[in-house]
Amino acid sequence: MREKHRFFGNIVVGVLALQGDVIEHRRALDLVGVKSKEVKVPSDLESIDGLIIPGGESTTLSLLVELGGMFDVIGEKIAGRMPIFGTCAGLIMLSKEIIDGRRDQKSFEVFEVSVKRNGYGRQLDSFEAPIALDGTSPPNYPGVFIRAPAVVSLGDKVEVLGKVIKDESPVLIRQGRILGATFHPELTDDLRVHELFISMIEEV
């Protein structure tokens, strides 16, 4: 049994709320015991300690972030070493290189990885498979992969924190204060990935 509601002080995590599964991330943060708020406009970034970019459609997110003038302000926050976590489309939004993206699709270009959109195929190819969260654990994290991207190459600074047993490909990756998942921890009741992100915020 996990401890209920450890005290996380005044940590507030923002969830980019332009499109996607925002409420599932806020629910997970609530279960971890951390306050959260929606981030829709630049001024929402002022009082947050970390930011989650949720799952959704990366082409839509790219457009809405650009139209809202959020690329520069969130980019400055990331440069200022604010922890940031992207799941699925959120990971695509952080990646340096996007394969099979739209030509006008943009990202924050901070994660030294190359990701392939819809890397496993269409919705019929979406799958559930266990993830091994580190070198010593059995593959016991419930991986939910929905039209998921695939990480096809990694820079030297990127650590692999989780591999899916389906094909041993990296699915949870970290580069300093940037965390990325090709799957959806927010759709499960296993809070370990969100807890990891909160520990990254606590380290700041």
Binding site: A17, L18, Q19, G20, D21, V22, I23, E24, G55, G56, E57, C88, A89, Q123, S126, V144, I146, R147, H184, L187
Partner: peptide, 8 residues
């Protein structure tokens, strides 16, 4: 899950 990703 796919339905949830389409929110907003």
């Amino acid at each position: 899950g796919l339905a949830e990703m389409l929110r907003g």
